[in-house]
Nucleic acid binder design. Structure first.
Length: 260
DNA sequence: CTAGATGTTAAGGT
DNA sequence: CACCTTAACATCTA
């Protein structure tokens, strides 16, 4: 589930496997994943070059290479896989980078909702898309309040809006709301100063713990609601059956007793 | 067979 | 301008 913590793990994976190696060949198996660049241009930009470093903003991963940056976004289903043996090539590999050491990096995207692009600088992309500050690296409690102040609509919608804060998706938004004990359908205008502080603190804790757990829900702390997000899921705090709610077209889960 | 799944965006409405 | 809902995208699974 490629939200901020997942993409942070992909970043570390790319850093640990693919930096400073010359690229021998690039193949795009499905042009639908390309955004603002065609296959030939992308191949020209990458071939013979090396990834120098990476950065992440929200759910976007950038890798500096040659005269610009490769941008990777994963949609609802996507990940990276570094491998050597052709038998390990994942199903639904949409782009494929072969390094001179014979290892390969696959961009896997089953549902084709992810995108690969090329930007001169990450900041250009971030401002063009009007993305908010990164939820993990670029916020503090004061700024967080200011981002949400004066907004209308439900809290969950605002938190999931990438133009407000970048990186939170459906699952982690539910987790943050649960940990802060605030209901997803609370109007932003009704959120108290105390609740804003709790939300900010939960956002930091949840994202940090998720990254520590390698974004794997099986390794999340016991108090997390994420592993219980399902029809018969129960609140890990009070045991009550979770409620399902649709906000901004997405299914959210929350505990009606613990979250007010 | 159908509904729903981690994301984003366009279109149309309030 | 801000926000809402719905649909669409493509594919797999419960």
């Amino acid at each position: 589930m490629p939200e901020l913590p997942d993409v942070e793990i992909f970043k570390r994976y790319l850093d640990a496997t693919s930096l400073h190696q010359q690229i021998e060949k690039v193949q795009v198996h499905h042009s639908r994943i390309l955004s603002g660049v065609n296959q030939k241009t992308l191949q020209n930009f990458l071939t013979g070059e090396k990834f120098e470093k990476t950065s992440r903003h929200g759910k976007h991963l950038f890798a500096k290479i040659g005269g610009g940056w490769l941008r990777l976004h994963f949609g609802m289903t996507g990940y990276l896989k570094y491998y050597k043996n052709e038998t390990q090539k994942p199903w639904h590999t949409r782009m494929h980078i072969r390094f001179c050491n014979d290892f390969q990096l696959a961009y896997v995207n089953q549902r084709l909702l992810g995108r690969v692009g090329w930007v001169e600088k990450p900041e250009d992309f971030i401002s063009r898309k009007r993305l908010g500050p990164d939820a993990l690296n670029d916020t503090d409690c004061h700024r967080f309040k200011k981002l949400l102040a004066g907004r209308k609509g439900f809290l969950k919608s605002a938190l999931m809006n990438q133009k407000v804060i970048a990186g939170l998706g459906n699952v982690y938004t539910d987790e943050i709301l649960f940990q802060a004990r605030v209901a997803p359908d609370k109007p932003v205008e009704d959120v108290s100063a105390k609740e804003f502080a709790a939300l900010f603190k939960s956002m930091q804790t949840v994202l940090c713990k998720a990254v520590e757990a390698k974004a794997n829900p099986e390794q999340f702390p016991k108090r997390f609601i994420t592993p219980h997000r399902s029809k018969d899921g129960r609140c890990p705090r009070c045991g009550r059956k979770l409620e399902k709610i649709t906000v901004a077209g997405r299914s959210g889960y929350f505990c009606p007793r613990c979250q007010v």
